[in-house]
Simulated scan of single mutants.
Amino acid sequence: MLDLKEIFLKKGFTNEQAEILKEAFLNTRQYEEGDNFQQEGQVCQHIALIVKGQFRYFYHTEEGEVTRWISLEGDFMTSLSSFIQQKPAVENIQATKDCTLALLSKTSWTKLYAEYEFIREFWLRTISYNYIGMEERVFHQIALSAEQRYQWMLENYPRFNQEVPDKYIASMLGITPRHLSRIRAKRI
């Protein structure tokens, strides 16, 4: 399990900033595999830091569940549009293994955001990074082959190939697990 201050320092925060964040994220909660951090239809009230474990973001569709993303140990996570707009979420966020989260409520986040410039800068970088990533993934789903999407994922998110179950990788790529196996077999 990662130390909170160590996580913040690795993310580029100064020692003083890491201490402020460590104090803000004091509330921790355990999740068992299958537990939901967020359910569609509910308003997201927290930003979380994954201290241990991983979570998947998914939607229910007519064809079944579609995994949009996986957040890994050391990542921040929230249902962004629900958290910002305080409207019901359209996605689910579920533990894929036993997890520990450090939580920060919407009220506490708003206070930190108002008080500290480094939080506002971090938020802008995070939103920009997430928007660009979402834009890239949409483009890739439209314009690239499954093999190209897989190659891009390997280059940009190498931890996924090591830590994420194949069924979730395949779902994020918009393919079946069988097709993912064929792509991998071609690469050998």
Rank of each mutant, 00 (worst) to 15 (best):
R120K: 15
V43T: 08
M134E: 14
L124P: 00
Q85W: 15
I127P: 01
I175E: 10
R184P: 11
D98I: 04
F25W: 06
T176V: 09
T100R: 04
E23I: 05
S105P: 01
Y131I: 14
H140T: 11
H179F: 08
T78D: 05
R184T: 04
F37I: 02
E91D: 09
R182W: 07
I47T: 02
I175C: 08
L9Q: 12
D166C: 01
M134A: 09
M172K: 00
C99M: 11
E163M: 13
N27R: 14
T28Q: 14
S181K: 01
L144D: 12
L21A: 07
R184M: 11
F160Y: 14
P88T: 13
L112E: 09
E19Q: 06
K22D: 07
E33Y: 08
E65W: 01
T100L: 05
S105E: 00
A89I: 06
I50T: 00
A18K: 03
Y59V: 11
R29W: 00
R149Q: 02
T78C: 14
M172F: 06
L26F: 09
S71T: 10
Q85H: 11
M134I: 14
G174W: 14
G41F: 10
T67F: 05
N92P: 02
Q85G: 07
I132P: 02
A24L: 13
I127C: 11
E117D: 12
C44H: 10
E135F: 09
A146P: 10
S79W: 07
E19F: 02
R68Y: 09
K106T: 00
H60D: 10
W109P: 08
R68F: 08
Y150Q: 10
R68Q: 08
S181L: 05
L104K: 01
N130K: 12
Q151R: 10
E33R: 14
Q39V: 13
Y57C: 13
F76D: 00
G12M: 06
L144S: 02
N92E: 13
L72V: 03
L4T: 12
V138E: 05
E117T: 03
N92D: 06
R56Q: 04
H46R: 07
Q17Y: 11
E91I: 15
Q85I: 05
E117I: 10
K10R: 12
R56F: 02
